[in-house]
Design a protein around this nucleic acid. Structure first.
Lengths: 233, 233
DNA sequence: CAGTGGTCTAGACCACGAT
DNA sequence: TCGTGGTCTAGACCACTGA
């Protein structure tokens, strides 16, 4: 018994979370079905559905038709990361944004890149290397390959003022992508650009973007030492 | 005109995404209101609402009452990461899981830890250091502080068979937490444990967990070189 | 087969916030 | 003020899947 009628899905969600955390419903337990809960809470089944769906999205409940709803045995922590434009990220921290183009060329990428992008091993791509700065200090190296077949007009953009990061967001279509986070040791060259000791541990983000089945771009971001990516969960 | 009636929210979502990707609705553009779209698609407003809400959750739409719905100017990429139990993570890759307790003590933590956990600077916490192995090779070091006031029964658990990672998930309450990803250079000690060269770049996950306003545990995971965290977006 | 969640509908009222 | 999205309702049908 809750004692009070729960009128909106947020209240229902809150009560469900309370029961899970208080172990009234233990991991592996089956919980009452939507109709019964709606009855108990004095609201429509739709409202309970909305609440349970929301809890399930966070990974704490397993729901299956016919089988019912159970409290997850091994609640995977689910973290949602927002990956903004680099400029926005820097400005959001109240720091001054700066940008420098380091290198730009049209060339045949190393096999690892053409392999990942599934482009012909001998076809040329646009290569951009640039540095983003926060308060005039090196913040991150952007190391990017662009498939000019997917974004032909990229060839006419100098990328001296606007970063490819920002330009692509504005002009390139994409449908999906994948992203990987890792750590890597700074090469002599990267260390020089980032003004840090060689072999420093760098936080690395790799991103591959597609428009349907066409590769659009592959980027590696090498962050200056000390960078953290945070989120709540 | 779509030509066909869209009967479910997934179809509506798909059509909305198509229009955004095809730039029929450009970044910054206002899109028709729910009632008009429902009319156009031949479905209930609720269905359109469900679809638009779903698209907005992925960051591609900005919705505000009265102001209406606009295509986001700077669509932040939003990645959802699942962070499973280490054992599950290893076994899901078809590798053999192994576990070794390295150190266990009750002691006063360094100020950085008591500060982050907001415990009294002189109060003792339970400290656990352990190694998780995949196919008998070092996979990740788990370096953890546990607030025994929040989880008293942790004092009676030897943690020689079950990792604290797993044990806490089963026996500790928590309501929320935060997580941070970064890179760090391997110390001599960590390098020895992970069987890698000193100063290797390690991928690091820091996690702080709360039960209401009570700190539960703080853990640092130091992954063996080469580790990647991937997701789709 | 039958029970459960998934979804749609039409209508209603409300909260927010741009103007 | 008042248009827009946010949500609730009651009822209905459907899809999946365990038994």
């Amino acid at each position: 018994m809750t004692g009070t009628v729960l009128r909106d899905w947020r209240s229902v969600k809150k009560e469900v979370l309370r029961r899970i955390h208080a172990r009234e419903w233990k991991p592996g337990d089956m919980i009452p079905n939507e109709t019964d809960l709606a009855d108990e809470f004095g609201c429509a089944r739709t409202t309970v559905n909305r609440a349970l769906r929301s809890v399930a999205e966070s990974g704490l409940l397993d729901r299956r038709r016919k089988a019912g709803t159970r409290v997850a045995e091994h609640p995977v922590a689910r973290a949602t990361l927002d990956i903004p434009l680099i400029r926005n990220e820097i400005e959001a921290r109240g720091r001054k944004y700066g940008y420098q183009l380091i290198k730009k060329s049209t060339s045949v990428p190393p096999p690892a890149v053409s392999g990942a992008m599934r482009t012909m091993a001998n076809s040329e791509l646009l290569y951009i290397q640039a540095l983003h700065l926060a308060d005039d200090k090196p913040y991150v190296i952007e190391d990017r390959w662009i498939n000019t077949k997917a974004v032909p007009c990229a060839l006419e953009e100098p990328f001296e003022i606007i970063s490819s990061n920002e330009w692509l967001l504005r002009y390139a279509r994409y449908t999906h992508g994948d992203i990987a986070f890792s750590a890597s040791s700074a090469s002599e060259i990267h260390a020089k650009i980032l003004c840090c000791p060689a072999h420093s541990a760098l936080f690395v983000v790799d991103r591959l973007t597609w428009d349907g089945s066409n590769p659009v771009t592959k980027v590696t971001l090498l962050f200056a030492p000390g960078h953290q990516l945070r989120t709540e969960l």
